[in-house]
Computed example of a mutant assay.
Amino acid sequence: MRMGFRLVLDAEDGIEVVGEAGDGQVAIEQVAALAPDVVLMDVRMPRMNGIEATSALVEAAPDVRVLILTTFDLDEYAFAALRAGASGFLLKDARPAELAEAIRTVAAGDAVVAPRVTRRMLELFADRLPDGQVDTPEDPRLAALTAREREVLVAIAEGLSNAEIASRLYLSEATVKTHVAHVLDKLGVRDRVQAVVVAFQTGLVAP
């Protein structure tokens, strides 16, 4: 599987495979040594699984983006990896062009999980969150948001694109992009995926 990914990615302009790992522990060691921009992370691996490795990587190397690879699109473990700090997930049978585009998107600081897919995952697994806790609507993470930014966060959690949010709130798309950037910054999250997780955790949006 890794050889196949390497062959595909090495053929892409602007993408270089700098290392490989057979388990999560080796992945952490490789990231420390090689400082890649993006890590393609499997979920089920020996010694240390992808969830544990993702959590450790996000903490130790916050500039490294993690893209989870999974065999099916609503993998509970992939969902847990998103909560651990991954920037998205991708099916293992994705076409080469999709794989390359996903890597470029994540490297640019965005997420590759469509908001609607994220919301569906949260609906399915909200009653099985790893920590068993759901925060109250008065969660302090929401305190810094303006009323408009809360509206934008709700719309993101509902799966709306920037264009759809602009239409709903009677704003320009450029203004929506600015609001989204402020929401991410104030929540202390890296992308829309993490923002949606916060929206559900805080009770701002309920499954």
Score class of each variant (00 low, 15 high):
Thr54His: 07
Met3Ala: 08
Ala32Gly: 08
Asp185Met: 12
Arg128Ala: 03
Gly188Ile: 07
Val205Tyr: 04
Val152Ser: 02
Arg190Phe: 06
Gly132Phe: 03
Val64Glu: 14
Met41Ala: 02
Arg95Asn: 06
Val106Ser: 04
Ala11Pro: 11
Pro130Ala: 07
Glu101Lys: 09
Ile68Glu: 05
Val189Ala: 00
Ala195Ile: 05
Ala80Ser: 05
Met121Glu: 07
Ile165Leu: 03
Val183Gln: 04
Val205Cys: 01
Met45Thr: 10
Thr71Asn: 01
Gly19Gln: 15
Leu74Asn: 14
Ser167Cys: 05
Val134Met: 01
Val112Phe: 06
Arg141Glu: 07
Val197Ser: 04
Leu9Tyr: 10
Glu149Asn: 07
Gln201Pro: 00
Leu160Ala: 04
Asp42Thr: 10
Gly19Pro: 12
Val26Asp: 11
Asn49Thr: 13
Lys186Cys: 01
Val106Ile: 12
Gly50Phe: 08
His182Asn: 14
Pro46Phe: 07
Arg150Val: 04
Ala11Glu: 11
Ala147Met: 14
Asp13Ile: 11
Asp93Ile: 09
Val39Gln: 04
Arg190Gly: 04
Ile103Trp: 04
Ala11Gln: 13
Leu82Pro: 06
Lys177Gly: 06
Val117Trp: 00
Ile28Lys: 15
Thr202Tyr: 00
Leu124Trp: 11
Val154Gln: 02
Val43Asn: 05
Ala111Val: 09
Gly132Trp: 04
Asp185Leu: 11
Gly85Ala: 08
Ala155Ser: 00
Asp37Ser: 06
Glu101Gly: 02
Gln30Cys: 15
Asp75Cys: 00
Glu52Met: 10
Ala78Pro: 03
Leu122Cys: 03
Phe200Ile: 15
Ala35Tyr: 15
Gly88Gln: 07
Leu122Lys: 14
Ala27Ser: 06
Leu145Glu: 11
Leu7Tyr: 11
Ile165Glu: 01
Leu40Lys: 11
Ala80Leu: 09
Leu204Cys: 05
Gly85Val: 13
Val196Ser: 00
Leu124Val: 10
Met45Phe: 08
Leu122Ala: 03
Val176Lys: 11
Val8Ser: 05
Glu98His: 11
Leu122Ile: 11
Val43Gln: 08
Phe89Asp: 06
